[in-house]
Design a binder for these strands. Structure first.
Lengths: 307, 307
DNA sequence: ACGGGTGGTGCAGAAAATTCACCGCATATC
DNA sequence: GATATGCGGTGAATTTTCTGCACCACCCGT
């Protein structure tokens, strides 16, 4: 879009930190960029950059403006997507920030199902922790987020939530595999594999273990990758943990729920930027996700009731 | 702002209905305007105008885009006002759509008081009925609305509300002037002056009169102008009606409240476009209005309690 | 058939943006 | 303390973009 070229230049300067670097990024002379920025500030009525010897930094006014620019662009994208929908083209792009557990099965399945209906829609999916996901929503870098136990920030609007009891992952020949439900005390003395302390699975486990200080449970292996942890369990007869939504059916591994009276279930939250109107494609996909989550929630509740 | 020139041109074409007329309005050649519009549509990716033999009309995509343009401009104005506030300039503009009753005393007083603190802030005030006021909010033509008994539409967000018992307006020598409170039955046989049926005062009176069909009350004079009605009462010994907020102290006229058990009081509502973040100047003025309305409500309630 | 309205186009000249060459300045570096 | 490097800013020439003019094809009501 021709009109937002000045906005683009402002953003480039913010990113690069100096006019000369930004000019190089944008394939333009520093001189020309300098003039554009100065003219823009004159038009806008206020300076938006601090001129430091080392380069340019946004001042508070600039921060406000940058926020406006981002909101504005995002809104235009929404309008364009609605217009596309109007002419029956069904195009668009959906960007998602989510936690690891959605990667093995849930999101691939949902996205492929959605693309069967609307092949014109493209996706970007990135793993982000609770905090990073929320920041991406706030900066309009992602449309929707799907994370466990996010710190509830003001800008995070929860669209749907489901409860996910933690499951233990092990080989079929593991002694605990005979249990239908794993109690916390069963873990005493077992070889355990866990994610680092800030991960939702670990937070919930640690919280529960604080109640039973006499039990000896220390992970022998800590990793940020659930994929790696699952693979490791195949080799040493160890026990790993994961939310059921993150468990891909894999030969050689079985999963057993951990009793929810021992360990509180994790909350998976689907969220967006508060007050934002999502583009058509994203809004549709959110609808599908909400539906899928409700189904899942019904199933898991059913399973829990059986135990 | 340099960047929104294309938006301005689009709006001009929408207003004028044809490129040639719009070109004249914008002091530019039709040829140049035509190119701009075509280039814009090419950049945007979709046609936004229908080319008719008679001229140009927005298509649905264009409607969507126009809405975006308006929202966008309004948001930029808000950002600019916030920035101005940041640098301590205290500038800005407040546009108000309100009913007649606010014109004689309330708004002049409030605006002058506000401008004593912030002389840099300018105002525009227009009388609008309930429906038109809400439409102005929705199209961002007005920041705030102050109307009686608006039809509650989805986009109208009520910020504050006060109750206003209807008052009768008459000369001091009128027989009813001896009463402290006017009962509905007292009006029987009097010479009455009323606004047309859609006005809030009239709606409330008609509603009350339906309960007492045996009373003979028909206005001898109907006018849309409360100012005119008040003036007329000075000449013929008639009775007119108005909300107390709309009554300017005027020599030769007295007002008496109509008993609220006979006629329901009117509701004066202060509102804005739902979900919108108002510019700093408007937001401040709204705060002042809310305060003033609360004070007024306290007074009137006090007065009502006395009766 | 006509006159007045519409949007659209080729081309020459006007206007605006970009480039290139510099300047002054503050900060690192030796 | 001299030097080198990076920064933002400016003047003049050049390139790109845009505008204005004349004109076309079209539709409509008379």
């Amino acid at each position: 879009m021709r009109q937002f070229i000045d906005f683009d230049f402002v953003e480039a300067v913010v990113r690069a930190g100096s006019i000369r670097k930004a000019a190089e990024d944008m394939n333009i002379t520093a001189s020309a960029l300098n003039r554009r920025i100065n003219r823009f500030e004159r038009d806008f009525g206020y300076e938006i950059f601090e001129r430091l010897p080392a380069g340019m930094r946004l001042n508070p006014a600039g921060e406000l403006l940058l926020e406006h620019i981002r909101r504005q662009k995002s809104d235009l994208a929404r309008v364009r997507s609605q217009v596309a929908d109007l002419s029956g083209v069904r195009r668009g792009h959906v960007s998602i920030a989510c936690s690891q557990a959605l990667m093995p099965a849930f999101l691939p399945k949902q996205i492929s199902r959605y693309r069967e209906l609307h092949p014109g829609v493209t996706f970007s999916v990135n793993t982000r922790d609770r905090l990073a996901a929320e920041q991406e929503l706030a900066s309009f870098a992602s449309d929707i987020a799907l994370v466990f136990e996010p710190k509830h920030m003001a800008d995070f609007e929860v669209i749907a939530a489901i409860s996910q009891p933690i499951h233990a992952v092990m080989r079929p020949d593991h002694p605990l595999a005979r249990h239908d439900v794993i109690r916390l005390r069963d873990l005493s003395g077992q070889v355990l594999v866990m994610p680092p302390p800030q991960f939702a699975v670990r937070v919930l486990l640690d919280e529960a273990l604080k109640q039973l200080p006499y039990i000896d449970v220390e992970p022998v292996l800590v990793s940020e990758s659930f994929d790696f942890m699952s693979n490791y369990v195949l080799w040493e007869g160890a026990v790993s943990f994961q939310f059921p939504i993150g468990i891909a059916d894999r030969a050689g591994l079985v999963t057993r729920p951990v009793a929810t009276k021992d360990v509180a279930p994790g909350k998976l939250l689907l969220g967006q930027m508060r007050g934002r109107t999502l583009p058509v494609a994203s809004a549709r996909f959110v609808q599908q996700l909400v539906h899928a989550m409700h189904e899942l929630s019904g199933q898991s509740r059913h399973r829990v009731d059986q135990t």
